[in-house]
Amino acid sequence: MTTAPDGFAPGDRVRTRAVDPAGHTRLPRYARGAVGVLVERAGRHPLADDRARGLTGPARSVWHVRFAAADLFGEGDHTVTVELWEDYLTRIEEQR
């Protein structure tokens, strides 16, 4: 895994990784390649994807990321807040 990106803040708009990894991950399929908003930092932990392969990496931020259901499923008026490692996220700079 690459070095974790820095400088995320609540309110940032992010896009989740779209790739379908070969191994264990904690980015659910339904939330891949989607745009959401950072709600709150949920601590710092080594990446689960690495730990599942017996690797120990540095702790990095985990975020509550809120999505509109319509952006995930094309329908629904609810929100879904998923807890995601910053490695899964890219900030959408031009939207700020």
Binding site: H24, R51, R53
Partner: peptide, 11 residues
């Protein structure tokens, strides 16, 4: 083993 390896093994 660790918890993530355990989840991975189930998956």
């Amino acid at each position: 083993y660790n918890l993530d390896e355990f989840r991975d093994a189930q998956e």
